[in-house]
């Protein structure tokens, strides 16, 4: 495909999105419902990733270092 400008390319991308999701055949109000639901879900996922992923990673690292990292030597003595 040859595109004259970015606008045309974006229009084509939107057309592909319509075709692949199947909402090409829907009526305009249904299209807007679908789009708003999809975009709000994506926005929420992105927002929650931004907020929570660093916390999760820090907690996970702490947790795993505690689990596998510093094993106190006293356990060995206890066992023997």
């Amino acid at each position: 495909m040859n595109f004259k400008n970015l606008r045309e390319y974006l229009a084509w991308l939107y057309y592909q999105y319509l075709l692949i999701t199947g909402i090409y055949v829907l009526e305009p109000w249904e299209k807007s419902i679908f789009n708003s639901i999809l975009f709000s879900v994506i926005a929420m996922v992105i927002y929650t990733s931004y907020v929570f992923v660093p916390i999760h990673v820090r907690l996970a690292l702490e947790f795993f270092t505690r689990m596998f990292g510093g094993q106190p030597e006293s356990t060995m003595t206890l066992m023997t």
Binding site: V45, T48, S49, F52, V53, H56, A60
Partner: peptide, 16 residues
């Protein structure tokens, strides 16, 4: 239990 909870929370972000 803790591992399970971690996995559960990570699910959504890690799939992405």
């Amino acid at each position: 239990m803790t591992i399970f909870l971690y996995l559960f929370f990570f699910c959504q972000h890690f799939t992405m």
